[in-house]
């Protein structure tokens, strides 16, 4: 019972899958195919990311993170947030655990939000692919317009979070690792 409660979302979705499969066998095949593809993608990035996070957790002291991405790290912090986000690969959900360890180690909230945002538009391997499939103009407008909005937005969001909100975030990410 506890197992079912813990995975209730999975069970509900499995029931929906079953109903759809009964109504049309092709639906079932397609759902399994797409989910399987996504599991393969996930296994390609999530386990190594968690290992890298684990290593970062034990080897990088808080002081170092605060120096490079903390409250007073200024442009350097922004630069590292951008660098981390753009060198990354993998779907957005892989970025959340990385963001959590950055927060835990004392990185500034606005920089962590900017890191997440960079991840959604500026991953270098993906940029090349975007240029070849949608055009250079499209890609450059996408990159520059979204990044500048995210840059402002990250600081606006940080302003909107109260000190207790920020503390909660740090507590939550500390509890997770």
């Amino acid at each position: 019972m506890k197992f079912i409660m813990k995975h209730k979302a999975t069970f509900i979705l499995l029931i929906i899958t079953l109903v759809l499969t009964i109504s049309n066998i092709n639906y079932g095949k397609s759902i399994l195919q797409i989910s399987w593809d996504n599991i393969i993608t996930m296994m390609g990035v999530i386990p190594p990311i968690f290992i890298l996070i684990g290593l970062l957790d034990v080897w990088v002291p808080k002081e170092v993170m605060i120096k490079y991405m903390g409250e007073r790290s200024g442009l350097r912090g922004l630069f590292f947030a951008f660098l981390l986000g753009s060198m990354a690969a993998g779907p957005l959900y892989a970025a959340f655990p990385v963001a959590a360890i950055l927060l835990k180690k004392g990185a500034r909230t606005a920089y962590v939000i900017f890191f997440l945002s960079t991840w959604t538009v500026a991953k270098i391997p993906l940029l090349l692919f975007e240029m070849s499939s949608l055009g250079i103009d499209f890609t450059i407008i996408h990159l520059i317009s979204m990044l500048s909005m995210f840059l402002i937005g990250s600081f606006v969001i940080e302003k909107l979070l109260s000190p207790s909100d920020k503390q909660n975030l740090i507590d939550k990410s500390t509890a997770l690792s």
Partner: peptide, 28 residues
């Protein structure tokens, strides 16, 4: 570090699996 990695991975699974299934259903 490896223990931490394993633990966080296991914690994420209950959120990850339904997400993947949901996407499978939606894209179908």
């Amino acid at each position: 570090a490896l223990k931490k990695a394993y633990k966080s991975f296991m914690k994420l699974i209950p959120a990850l699996i339904p997400m993947l299934l949901f996407v499978g259903i939606l894209l179908t």
